[in-house]
Design a protein around this nucleic acid. Sequence first.
DNA 1: TGCACGATCTCG
DNA 2: GAGATCGTGCAT
Length: 172
Amino acid sequence: MSSKLSKDFYTIDAVALAKNILGKILVRKFEDGTTLKFKITEVEAYCGEDDLACHASKGRTKRTEIMYHEGGKVYVYLIYGMYWMLNVVSGKENEPQAVLIRGLENISGPGRVGKALKLDRSFYGEDLLQSERIWIEKTLDSAENLKINTSTRIGIEYSGDIWSKKPWRFYL
DNA sequence: TGCACGATCTCG
DNA sequence: GAGATCGTGCAT
């Protein structure tokens, strides 16, 4: 009875995916068999090399490599030496875009998301379409009664006014 | 080979 | 409002 989201869901551009992914269910299955499900409540879109707030603006490196892949992969990275950020790669191949999962139901703040999901380096490049430990499911009820709020992205002042003021943060 | 810094959180 | 804490990119 899997209702995993299909590949088509992820291969659109990051801003569209960010809005669509709100309200969906993030599923995490731990090694001991415990399964946790969280509704996704807050996301941000990072769009390509031109977006100075996006890590891909540095070009294709070992770190950003995964963003150049087709949508549906996981991009995780360590920030401030202690928090794992969870991102979902979006777009088509060679379109380095990703959606940062900033908040889940009852869990606010991207650092706490990574902690709750027990993320680590091994999740880099994980395939959301095939993984047995992390994936995203459709909601059962009619999804579109959601009120989506928009604002600017967090913590990226360094990228300058043009990019830091893009309304690419979405939350319920 | 070394160094400055960041898509954050918690505590005071 | 500062510190924790370390991988990454970029300058030597």
